[in-house]
Amino acid sequence: MDDFGDAIRAALNLLVSLDADLMEIVGLSLYVSLVAIFFACLIGLPLGAAIALFKFPGRKLFAVILNALMGLPPVVVGLIVYLLLSRSGPFGVFGLLYTPTAMIIAQVILVTPIIAALTRQVIEDLWLEYRDQLLSLGANTTTALPTLLWDGRFSLITAVLAGFGRASAEVGAVMIVGGNIDHVTRVMTTAIALEVSKGDLALALGLGIILLSLSVSVNGAVYAIKDAAQRRHA
């Protein structure tokens, strides 16, 4: 119980004092997760919609694989990205290992299947409802794709939030490719892992509370916006 009390005190102290290190870690965590989500959406939304709309050989198998990839083990992804970006790897020349960019790449790989698989389901259901109407109005599957993504935007927010949840809570991959370097690649989750390994459980828990609050705040804000917009458009 003492640990919890100390954790809350530690979290409040860090927040009230606007600890510069903490702010840097929070800022980098948000930056990495949000940029990763942006690129995962850029790939995952049209990919999921395309699998839902276009008929091609192996489509069902592709959908099954996509669903399976939602459970990609982060450490495996971290290891693969590490091998690709390490000096001896095919992309070693870019010198990206142990940079926020490497962490973003790893998170994009982890989050894209989640967004794509959930998008596929949403768009498939929407297509059932819209198909006749859109085809009658002159659309084809290609022109229907952006229309369905736009009309499914309220449901797709859930997919994006699921992706954000995965990205912000992820530690294994970013630890491997980021290295948890202070002032360079340290984010909330790797900082928590570090404090645990140092035995400072109160500080680790305090950071955990801040991470949780951050996640709840982002989700709450997005849901509030979604609800307001959904009420307007029904």
């Binding site: 409802e129 819209y130 006749d132 109407q133 859109l134 009658s136 109005l137 002159g138 659309a139 022109t143 229309t147 736009w150 009309d151 935007r153 309220f154 458009h233 029904a234």
Partner: peptide, 29 residues
């Protein structure tokens, strides 16, 4: 195809404004 249109018993309204619903098929064409 372009010179015919159909109204369904339960037409689907797109999640956008009334005028944008009319605008949409014109843009498609």
């Amino acid at each position: 195809r372009l010179n015919q249109a159909m109204v369904f018993q339960r037409p689907v309204m797109l999640r956008r404004s009334v005028s944008a619903n009319i605008h949409y098929p014109l843009k498609l064409r």
